[in-house]
C-alpha cells in the first residue's frame, strides 16, 4: 500500500521536474529521478494525514486523477459564473448584498477532503470559510442570497465527498441571525439552541 503511494509521488514529482527543466539528456533525467526519490522519502511523513479521532491515516494525494480534473473544471466554471454575479453586486448602485453566516456539518473522516471542501468554498466568490471545527462544522460567511442558497443546496459538498470516496453526510445547521431564518420556519426554531450558543461566542 505504502509503496503505491511512493510510486505515485515519485512519478508526480518527476513529471514536474521534466516540465520545469524541459531537457531530455540522460544526465538531467537521472538527476530528476534521484531528486524525486529523495524528495518523496523526505515528504512522505508530512503527506500521511491522521483523521480527527486519530484512528485512520490517509495519503494526501490519494484520489483518482480524472475525478480531480473533472472537479477542477467544475470549480473553474463555478468561479467564472459566480464571479460575474459578485461583480454585478459590487458595482450595482444600491450595493445588492445581504451578508450573513451560514453553518453546516459534514462528517468526512479524511482530513484532505475537509481541506479541499473549505478551500473550494472560499474560492467560490460570495462565500468564505470562517471556521472549521474538528467535528466538521463549517461556518461560512455568505455575501449574497444566491451564494447562501448555493451552500444550502449542498452541491459542492456532494462533489467533494464523491472525489474522495467518502460517505455523503451533509446537514444544514441554521445561522444565528433569526431574521434570516424566518422564511424557513420550524427548521430555524429547531436550531435555536445552537444559534444562541453561537451568539454568545461572538
Amino acid at each position: 500500500m505504502k509503496a503505491r503511494y511512493y510510486l505515485k509521488l515519485v512519478i508526480f514529482l518527476f513529471v514536474f521536474w521534466i516540465l520545469l527543466s524541459g531537457r531530455f539528456e540522460a544526465k538531467f533525467l537521472i538527476y530528476g529521478v534521484l531528486t524525486s526519490l529523495i524528495a518523496s522519502y523526505v515528504c512522505m511523513p508530512l503527506l500521511m494525514l491522521k483523521s480527527a479521532d486519530g484512528k485512520n491515516e490517509y495519503f494526501a494525494l490519494d484520489f483518482p486523477v480524472w475525478r480531480l480534473v473533472l472537479y477542477c473544471l467544475w470549480i473553474f466554471w463555478q468561479l467564472i459564473t459566480s464571479n460575474f454575479a459578485l461583480a454585478r453586486a459590487i458595482v450595482s448602485p444600491d450595493l445588492a448584498i445581504n451578508p450573513r453566516v451560514v453553518r453546516f456539518k459534514v462528517e468526512m473522516d479524511n482530513p484532505m477532503a475537509l481541506t479541499v471542501l473549505a478551500n473550494s468554498i472560499t474560492l467560490t466568490p460570495g462565500t468564505v470559510t470562517m471556521n472549521v471545527t474538528d467535528d466538521g462544522i463549517y461556518e461560512i460567511h455568505a455575501l449574497t442570497d444566491d451564494a447562501a442558497d448555493g451552500i444550502r443546496a449542498g452541491d459542492m459538498q456532494r462533489r467533494v465527498a464523491r472525489l474522495f470516496g467518502q460517505d455523503e453526510t451533509f446537514v444544514m445547521l441554521d445561522g444565528a441571525d433569526s431574521a434570516d431564518n424566518a422564511d424557513r420556519g420550524e427548521k430555524g426554531a429547531a436550531a435555536d439552541g445552537a444559534g444562541s450558543a453561537e451568539g454568545g461566542m461572538i
Binding site: L79, L86, I90, P99, V128, H141
Partner: peptide, 19 residues
Amino acid sequence: LRLPDFYSRLHASGNSETL
C-alpha cells in the same frame, strides 16, 4: 472600497483577484 465590513471585503480581495 465599497463593501461595509472586513469579511465582505475579503470576498472582493480574495476571489475577484483569483479570477
